[in-house]
Design a protein around this nucleic acid. Structure first.
Length: 354
DNA sequence: AAGCCGGGGTT
DNA sequence: AACCCAGGCTT
């Protein structure tokens, strides 16, 4: 079987078994494919679908996105993770609006100039939306190719990655690039899965070295693992007389960049003095909530929540240092990290009971 | 070359 | 609990 057979087998399989009803496959414009590809970075299809539908409804085209505030974009991204994707998406929309007359560029080089678009995302956009001939290399394609060649090393290794790009390029057909690109992703997502792959249903099993070894699950080799450090923080959930809660915007870089969160202090025992010194407010009744654990890719965070009421009528619309008093009802008007949203919902439940 | 950046699903 | 997912950017 040569390279041409690979793509032809894959395309024939796609015609019968490929996915053709995903939301971004209906009216697949470059803009709509772009939004979907950014959302799908490191995020599974089932998770993305409701976010994508809300997003497209609010921002049906590039001008709508370019004219929006970054806060609103982050608000629609709440819970999806990797929030830099949303900031770069918005930033790229503004660049296109100002320098490309509102039209997304149609070459890989120009697309890759835009923030958030790398080689794989750019290639996928042009192949899926415009049928251009570019390879992609996402997690699905890596797994399929690693098994085809029975490559022993972890695919994150640059040397292996270079080899995979090379192979992905030589396997491309001359026509039907959109279908082929969708096909190889679908194969990885539905047949050539990480665990228990369905090799009997695979259209390219004859050339698959891992299948011939009867041990496909041995590939790809898992990422070398390291222990996750544990960090702790104490979050101050401060309420005023109107039942509003104090939020502050996080720095633009770092974890949860640009999102809204609670003020933090080192520990629960230091909450009252910290609040007095930093904010100039004495605390009323203080309530220590049980801590909650949040797992990130590269560390674990232990959050100790402290709920307290602020005494007196002190309330300005905008407090210093980018803090705001936030009404509980419109929970999704700003970007909120998942554990913050969880705490706000818990708070709302409790205040209903009072 | 390695680390940073989330949240949810699967095993 | 470990691992992965339609990756890109920074150092």
């Amino acid at each position: 079987m040569n390279e041409d057979d690979f793509s032809q087998h894959l395309l024939a399989w796609f015609d019968s078994y490929g996915r053709k009803d995903l939301p971004w496959q209906q009216n697949p414009t470059l803009y709509r494919i772009w939004i979907s590809e950014i959302m799908l970075q490191q995020t599974q299809v089932a998770t993305v679908i409701p976010y994508y539908q809300r997003f497209i409804k609010r921002f049906p085209d590039l001008p709508a996105l370019a004219c929006a505030s970054v806060d609103e974009v982050l608000g629609l991204w709440t819970g999806l993770g990797y929030y830099a994707r949303a900031r770069r998406l918005h930033q790229a929309a503004r660049i296109v609006w100002e320098t490309h007359e509102g039209k997304l560029p149609t070459t890989l080089e120009a697309l890759m100039e835009l923030p958030g678009i790398g080689r794989s995302t750019g290639g996928a956009m042009l192949a899926l939306a415009l049928d251009q001939r570019h390879p992609i290399l996402d997690g699905n394609v890596k797994r399929v190719l690693i098994r085809q060649e029975a490559i022993e090393h972890w695919p994150g290794q640059p040397k292996v990655e270079k080899q995979l790009w090379q192979r992905a390029t030589t396997l491309l057909p001359q026509t039907r690039l959109a279908d082929y690109t969708q096909a190889i992703m679908d194969l990885g997502a539905t047949v050539c899965t990480r665990y228990r792959p369905r090799c009997p249903s695979c259209p390219v099993k004859e050339t698959c070295q891992a299948h011939l070894q009867a041990n496909p699950e041995a590939y790809p080799q898992p990422r070398p693992r390291k222990r996750l450090p544990l960090r702790t923080t104490c979050m101050l959930i401060l309420l005023n007389d109107q039942g509003e809660v104090l939020l502050e915007r996080r720095p633009p870089t770092g974890i949860w960049g640009g999102l809204w969160s609670f003020p933090e202090c080192p520990s629960q025992t230091e909450a009252a003095p910290w609040c007095q010194e930093q904010l100039g407010w004495p605390l009323g009744e203080v309530q220590n909530w049980p801590s909650l654990r949040h797992h990130f890719t590269h560390f674990t965070l232990d959050i100790q929540p402290v709920v307290a009421r602020i005494r007196g009528e002190s309330r300005q619309v905008m407090e210093p240092n980018g803090r705001v008093w936030y009404k509980m009802e419109p929970l999704y008007k700003r970007g909120l990290p998942a554990p913050i949203l969880r705490l706000l919902k818990r708070l709302r439940e409790q205040s209903k009971g009072e």
